[in-house]
Structures are given as C-alpha cells and as structure tokens.
Simulated scan of single mutants.
Amino acid sequence: MGSWMWRKLIKMRDIARSFHKKKLGNGRNTSFRYDNWSEKGVLITYLGERGIVDMGVIREATVEESIMGIRRKRRHRSMLLNDMEEMLKSVKEKLRAENEDVDIWRREAGYKSKFSTQETWMIMRIAEVKCSWSKSIWFSRATPKFAFVAWLAVKDRLSTMDRISKWDCGVDETCVLCKSEKESRNHLFFECDYSSKVWEHLTKGILVSDYTNDWLRILTIISSDHMERKKVFCLRYAFQATIHVIWRERNKRRHDEKPLPVGAVSRMIDKGIRNKLSILRSGGVKGWENGMKFWFSTPKLKVCIDEKATSMNSMKKGLHLM
C-alpha cells in the first residue's frame, strides 16, 4: 500500500477513536491514558500530559494499576483533578476481578460488543436527500456499463458540447447527430431528431399514450413503482442501452468515424435487449419465462433504414460492443 494511503488512514484516527470504547471489567487490559473508558472520554485528551502527571499515573499504567496499585493524592489545587479523583472512587467500586475488559463499538443503537461495517459507514457518511431516480439506474439485472453511462447522464456529467463550451470558448456546439440544434444532455436524450426516432421505435409500443421524449418526464415514468415488472424493466433497460449506444455513436461522429443510420442503431439496441431477456430466461430467473414474449408483443415503429450506409461488418461490430 502506498505511503499516500497510509497518510489518508492516519488522518482518520480521530474519527476511528470516536467509534471505539472500553467497557471495564477488572481494568487490566485498558490503558488509563489512551483508551476511551471513562465518562470524560480519552483522559490524555481531557487532562493533558500535565494533568496525568499531577495525578501520579505513569505512562504505561492500566486502569487497574492507576486506581488500585498507586497511593493516590486526595486533594489537588485543580478542581478538574479533584473531580477526576471522585470519579475514580466510583470506578474502583465497580471493578470486578473476575470480569475481563470488553471492546465495544459505536452502533446506531448505542455501543455494542460487535462491530458493523455497514452501520459505521452509515453513521460516518453525510446523508443526502434520496433521489427519486436511483431505482431507474441501479436496479437488479442491469448491465453495469449501461448503468454507469446513464448515471453520468442523469447527473449531467457527460461531456456534451454545452458543457465543453464553458471551458473552451469557440467550439462548435452543434449536435453531430441532427446537425441543427445546440448539443446538450436534454437535446441528445431524446429531443434530437436522430435519437428521438431510436427512442420512439423502442418504447412507444410500451408507453402508448404516455410516450414522451422529454428527459424529465422519462425519468419520472421509469422511476415509478406502479408499473408491471416486465414493463418497467424493459423501459429502464431500453433507457440505459439507448443512452449508451447514442453516446457511443455521438463520440464516433465527433472523431470522424463512419456513422450508423437510425435504423441500424435501433436494430442494434433492440437486439441487445432481446439478448438480455433471453439470458434472463435461460438463466432460470424467476418471473422471466415470458419476458421475450412481452417484448415481442409491444409494437415497434418502423424507421427508415439506409441499407447502403450500413454494412454487415459495422452491424456485427456494434452488436459486439453492446
């Protein structure tokens, strides 16, 4: 592990200390100075080095040694130290020779004897307002690379030309797919004449009267909990697959590669969705025996396919990348 990682871990020491305490039994395995065992917290922090010395406690002393084995002063000039002496009296009465000291860990319901990584993370993290669209991106059986690109799109973190123009003035912001409008996230998905035809081909038969190519309305629809399981899965998967392929096609054109027509892209995504449904069925995933039947039952709008512009090699390459 690199030295930079160790430096980062060392910076977390104070946070780590706040999650650990010692529950006293006989006090033999608990450091008087450095362990968090008292109601005052870690005593080296509470009293400081000078305060510990004034109490007559040596550096390596355990709680048992500090309370039982050392002749203690009864009065100090400092009220703080006098309060500590009173606390130690009450601790002395509670020590039990037959009981071992126990490590306890901070949990959501208080300190417990078992450590939980999940609860520790949930306590440490800064909780954000739960977004309504999370279930439409991170759902069971999603394809990770599709989900990742869709997540970037939802967060508006893809390098669309409207964002690039903010740090590179003078760039051509025209959409390379339709060559008529300024490229933005909402335009590319799916207001663009090119991408809207692909989206309409795949989803209008499922959405029927609810069909839309408006970004925010699409997110609302696919985030709904009130749709039948196969319908919502196919919509979410089509949404992610379409974003992934359209983004790839956009990047290809930006780098002057041979473009694919609308029909070829539509067929490529359709084939990818059918492959996914076939995998779910053949894999014995419960409830997906008729998944392919549902997809075929939704009518697909025909799109104009320029056969001359689409070679079999480009189609095979596209399906491989899916």
Rank of each mutant, 00 (worst) to 15 (best):
R71S: 12
K73A: 15
S136P: 00
A97M: 06
E86Y: 02
K40G: 03
E98K: 13
R72T: 07
Y46W: 15
S66W: 05
W37Y: 06
D35M: 03
R72H: 10
W133F: 03
S66R: 06
Y34L: 12
F139I: 06
S113P: 01
K135A: 10
S38Q: 11
R77M: 12
E93H: 04
V53N: 14
R71H: 12
L47Y: 05
E85T: 09
I58Y: 14
D103S: 13
L80M: 11
F115E: 04
E64W: 13
I123K: 03
R74G: 14
W121L: 13
V102G: 03
K89E: 11
I137A: 00
K135I: 07
S132V: 08
D54N: 15
R107N: 15
S132I: 06
E85S: 08
K89S: 08
D103T: 03
G56F: 10
V129L: 08
R75N: 14
W37C: 05
N36Y: 10
L95T: 14
M55F: 02
Y34N: 12
I126R: 08
V102Y: 02
S132P: 01
W138A: 10
S116M: 03
F139L: 04
S134V: 11
E39I: 12
M79Q: 11
G56C: 12
M84K: 00
N82E: 04
D101Y: 01
S134G: 05
K135V: 09
A97I: 07
A61C: 15
G110T: 05
G41T: 09
D54C: 14
L95A: 14
E93N: 11
Y46Q: 04
A127K: 12
K135S: 11
E119V: 07
